[in-house]
Computed example of a mutant assay.
Amino acid sequence: MSNAKLFLLVGGLIAGLCLLILLFVGAIAGIVFYSIEHSAATQAAENFLRHNETLKQDIGEVREFGWFISGQINAQGTDGVAGLRLKAIGTRRSAWTTVRLVYRNGGDWRVVGAWYVNAEGRTVPLLDPYTFESSAPSQEAVYSGTSDASFASDVLQSPEPVLVRFTQVNAGDSAGAFMRLATKYAGRVRFFELYIESNEATRRRYNVSIVPTYILFKDGAEQGRLAGARSEQDLSRLLDRQLQR
């Protein structure tokens, strides 16, 4: 066999192998996207957004949602948490929304945090504040999104301590611990998320280069931070040190 034929044969085998890998990865991604799109959590999020008056006042009646729905759904036994990013298509315009949900004791998925980005680039809460059905149901918890435009009013001017989770759209880290902490510290600490790729000024100001990064603020000043994926216990210790002062 000549070198040219051998080269073509090897090249064909490599190309075929690459094609098989791409098909396999595409199939896995398709299964993941399909399972998220048709999940009970996504249905609960879409139902919430369709009937949210704040969102409808801006983009109009929600007609449908974009085909690409990203996020994570983590369910273990009778409890679960989910974080979803959906494109809501209204009669006037479209908007990207973020919805956080939980379910407990085998019940229905319930929205515990939601926000969207308006035409001016400002993060607008859709459920803020909200009340948890927790051991202290009368206490209000704040779990929402923030941005360059609203960071001062949301975080720096807050009378309560604020824990900010700096992350990215479609980041692989889970927000489950963050949502559970919002329940645990309801009425004592406020919780916000900030997407660094669309809020570059705040990212630079606090020198955030790793996602997730958690920064605790009180009276407009940073009180501590943790970089990288952290357990619920790590974050609790950070908060408890501040609350015990």
Rank of each mutant, 00 (worst) to 15 (best):
S2K: 10
V25M: 13
F33A: 11
V62E: 02
L127F: 07
I59R: 10
H38F: 09
G11V: 08
T131Q: 07
F132G: 08
L6M: 10
D128G: 01
V112Q: 04
I36F: 07
R245L: 14
P159V: 11
A88G: 02
T167Q: 06
R204L: 14
G121M: 07
L226W: 01
S70I: 03
R188Q: 15
N118K: 11
A45G: 02
Y116V: 00
E140H: 09
V10I: 15
E46L: 01
I59H: 06
S209Y: 05
T54E: 09
L84M: 01
L127D: 05
A27E: 12
A88Q: 00
I215V: 15
A177T: 10
Y206K: 09
Q57H: 08
N207Q: 14
A27H: 11
F48H: 04
L86M: 01
K87L: 15
F7I: 13
I28W: 10
L6Y: 11
E120T: 15
N199E: 10
E46T: 03
R230G: 01
T123L: 02
I59M: 08
M1K: 08
L17W: 09
Q233P: 00
E61H: 02
A136Q: 13
G66A: 09
G66F: 04
A182Q: 01
W96H: 08
V142G: 12
V32R: 14
V162N: 02
R225G: 00
T123D: 04
L216M: 07
D79A: 14
A45L: 04
R165A: 11
L55T: 04
V111K: 09
A149W: 12
G77T: 12
A82V: 05
G77F: 13
A88P: 04
A221D: 05
F192Y: 15
G172N: 06
F24G: 05
A75I: 11
S39Q: 08
A15E: 03
V142D: 01
S198N: 12
I59A: 12
L126C: 08
M179C: 09
P125F: 11
T91E: 12
S153G: 04
R122Q: 13
T131G: 11
V211H: 00
M179N: 12
E120D: 14
V102L: 14
L239Q: 05
R237T: 04
F191K: 09
A41K: 00
N207V: 03
L13T: 10
D148Y: 01
P212E: 05
L13R: 00
L20C: 15
